[in-house]
């Protein structure tokens, strides 16, 4: 089977935490254990410009929700992302999407 991954359009990630909690629920992780974690980066670029960027990254606990995707469901994080900025799929397809738009990050968890 072709390798799969998660494509994050971090231009639109609002840092809402849905992916984190969806993952914990899916895998019954207690507080303190994360399958995915959202990072925040803030910097003042100029008086008129501020960067506020969020980026979720899947941790070593991410199994790409194999238990869901194997019967056609979306990974828990992808399904619930409020900004709909996460895509699950085959790496080659995701790379093709990446070419079309800036501010994307592709993760290929083991």
């Amino acid at each position: 089977m072709e390798k799969q991954g998660l494509l994050i359009d971090y231009e639109f990630c609002t840092g809402c935490h849905s992916c984190e909690v969806a993952c914990k629920q899916e895998h019954e992780y207690p507080a303190g254990k994360w399958g995915i974690k959202v990072n925040e980066f803030t910097q003042q670029i100029s008086e008129k410009r501020m960067e506020i960027t969020y980026l979720p990254f899947p941790t070593d606990l991410c199994n790409l929700c194999h238990q869901r995707t194997s019967h056609g469901e979306l990974p828990a994080c992808v399904k619930h992302c409020q900004a709909a900025c996460m895509t699950f799929g085959n790496i080659t397809d995701l790379v093709a999407s990446m070419v079309k738009k800036p501010k994307m990050v592709l993760f290929s968890p083991k």
Partner: peptide
């Protein structure tokens, strides 16, 4: 035992906030 968004619902289209996902 589990709470998910309803992908057929026009309001949220399957999405859910963390508070709903922590309902259990």
């Amino acid at each position: 035992v589990r709470v998910e968004g309803d992908e057929n619902h026009p309001f949220s289209q399957g999405r859910a906030c963390p508070r709903l996902l922590a309902l259990t």
